[in-house]
């Protein structure tokens, strides 16, 4: 079987200070090739200040079966939100 090398997921940062966002994937055999391939595939129009690449197989992800027990328990903990609290009338900068 022929091979098209490994899959790497690509994350790009559009401006300094911005979060890295998933852009897509490329194939490559090593980290340098993955970075360069990501550069040629996903930054052709500039608009990039940083690149991450990571082997696709190294990413762990939740499934919809995980979702109820992972995420629902936090839905009712509204005391984590600032809007939960009642502040005295007239208090500033809080």
């Amino acid at each position: 079987m022929d091979n098209q090398l490994n899959i790497w997921e690509v994350f790009t940062q559009s401006k300094p200070g911005q979060p890295y966002r998933h852009a897509g994937s490329v194939h490559a055999s090593d980290r340098q090739m993955a970075l360069q391939n990501a550069r040629d595939s996903y930054t052709r129009r500039g608009e990039t200040s940083g690149l991450w690449v990571v082997r696709a197989e190294d990413i762990a992800a939740t499934t919809i079966e995980d979702n109820p027990s992972f995420f629902d328990p936090n839905d009712d903990k509204i005391y984590r939100l600032p809007s939960f609290y009642t502040m005295p009338e007239g208090a500033k900068n809080i």
């Binding site: 098209q4 090398l5 490329v26 194939h27 490559a28 090739m33 360069q36 391939n37 040629d40 595939s41 052709r44």
Partner: peptide, 11 residues
């Protein structure tokens, strides 16, 4: 040899 390298050579 690969799509990725076609992009690189064109660049």
């Amino acid at each position: 040899p690969m799509l990725e390298e076609d992009l690189a050579l064109a660049n």
